[in-house]
Structures are given as structure tokens and as C-alpha cells.
């Protein structure tokens, strides 16, 4: 850690966000979610509960999916943070999972969608896509109130098969 073993009211943190180095002076109370949204203007990551109950704020920390609302931002020091904004290609081309969400109409209002996609990407990388039941189980941390679950499972299945 860049911090000393001395208590401080602010903490300096260095990390990368979507591949870009970022230096932040943080109040240790700040959540990664609020830092991404309000300080870095990466508003693709959504706040649906701020309590770890909905998954709308899912991002990747060193490749693993976490809920950014319950991640104190100070804990990302030295880590790689990836958000939905990093998934699309440089010319705006969709990642196969994003395309699969479009193809399978795996969304309605779209608010939970970035979290679903970040969760789905990790689900595929983890290898938890053996069958639909496993996909359902491993995506159950992402609530979709519109109820687009059938499409979401189909999208993850499609992308996993590629």
C-alpha cells in the first residue's frame, strides 16, 4: 500500500481504471461506486441499492467481479479496475457478450444491464456456464426488476459458446 501505518483522514491511492492510471486522494469512507460515478464520471456503473443487494454496480477488480458499492475505494490501491466503459472496443464495436445481450433482447429499461454484463463476463471467465441452471445461479447476484432473465441467460449462454 502507498499508505503508511499511520492513521490519516485522507488516503492517497494509485490504481488503473479501464487501463488508465488514476491517482486519487480519498476520504476512506468513499465507496468505489461513488468514486467511479461522481469523481471519474464513469456513470455506466449504476447504483441500485448501495447495500450489496442488487449487483447493478458490478465491476471487475483485477479481473474478478465485485460490487463496487461495498468496496471502500481505498481498497483498490494498486489494483486494476474495469467498468462497463472498458468492454466496448476502441471503435465502439460491441463485445460478443454485449452483442449477445442485444441479440437476445436481454434487457428492458437497461439500468441493471451494465452490471449484468460485467457479471456475465466474469461468469464466463470463471467457467460457470455449464448449463442454464449454473448460469442462473451465478447471475443471481444481479437483480433485473424488469424481468429480462430469460434473455440474460440466453445471452450468456450464447457468448460462452463462442
Amino acid at each position: 500500500m502507498s499508505t503508511n501505518d499511520v492513521p490519516a483522514t485522507t488516503v492517497d491511492v494509485t490504481c488503473t481504471v479501464n487501463g488508465e492510471p488514476v491517482q486519487l486522494r480519498l476520504d476512506p469512507r468513499e465507496s468505489l461506486l461513488d468514486v467511479l460515478r461522481e469523481r471519474l464520471a464513469l456513470t455506466g456503473t449504476k447504483k441500485g441499492c448501495d447495500q450489496g443487494h442488487c449487483g447493478a454496480c458490478t465491476v471487475h477488480l483485477d479481473g474478478r467481479r465485485v460490487v463496487s458499492c461495498l468496496t471502500p475505494a481505498v481498497q483498490v490501491d494498486g489494483l486494476q479496475v474495469h467498468t462497463i466503459e472498458s468492454v466496448t472496443g476502441p471503435d465502439g464495436e460491441l463485445h460478443p457478450l454485449q452483442q449477445a445481450f442485444v441479440d437476445n433482447d436481454a434487457l428492458q429499461c437497461g439500468y441493471c444491464t451494465p452490471g449484468q454484463i460485467m457479471s456475465g463476463l466474469a461468469c464466463i471467465a470463471e467457467g460457470h456456464t455449464a448449463d442454464d441452471d449454473e448460469i442462473r445461479e451465478y447471475l443471481s447476484g444481479n437483480v433485473c426488476r424488469c424481468g429480462a432473465y430469460v434473455g440474460i441467460v440466453a445471452a450468456v449462454r450464447q457468448a460462452a459458446q463462442r
Partner: peptide, 15 residues
């Protein structure tokens, strides 16, 4: 949330 002091010691001994 109330403010708090934050430290992240680098070893178990330091903790």
C-alpha cells in the same frame, strides 16, 4: 457514516 482513521499495515506483525 462518521469519519474514521484508516491504516493498511503491510504484515501480520504490523497489524
Amino acid at each position: 457514516m462518521k469519519p474514521f482513521a484508516y491504516t493498511a499495515p503491510s504484515s501480520v506483525d504490523a497489524v
